[in-house]
Amino acid sequence: MHELGVVMEVVRVVEEFVRENDVEEVDTVVLQVGELSSMIPKYIYDVYPAAVDGTMLEKTKLDIEIIPGNGRCGNCETIFSVLQNHATCPNCQSTQFELLSGREFYIKEIVCY
């Protein structure tokens, strides 16, 4: 349910963009999803056909790029993957870190004619 509502928002934004930029036909919508965002790529793919049904994006393809969730250690400044290291710095074991990326949910671009 969560993904469907958000993907419908994606469709609204892209439709507006398409109208403003006089795009004739959209082939692919490309999203960027952070691995720490609450959006699961598999479910985004699953709900996409339902979200575009009856819109000008019907029959378009969907492509998702994953953005890694990286943090910078607040103690030794090592940059590490938050998921792989279970939110603990692999260098000094500190759990204090600044999140640099991974929460994103962007509409990156559209491939169109």
Binding site: V13, N21, F105, Y106, I107, E109, V111, Y113
Partner: peptide, 18 residues
Amino acid sequence: MKEYRVLEIKQSVFEDNN
């Protein structure tokens, strides 16, 4: 094959709501 182009949008999905 038809010629295609890539248009960058680069907009956060939550931006509109924000």
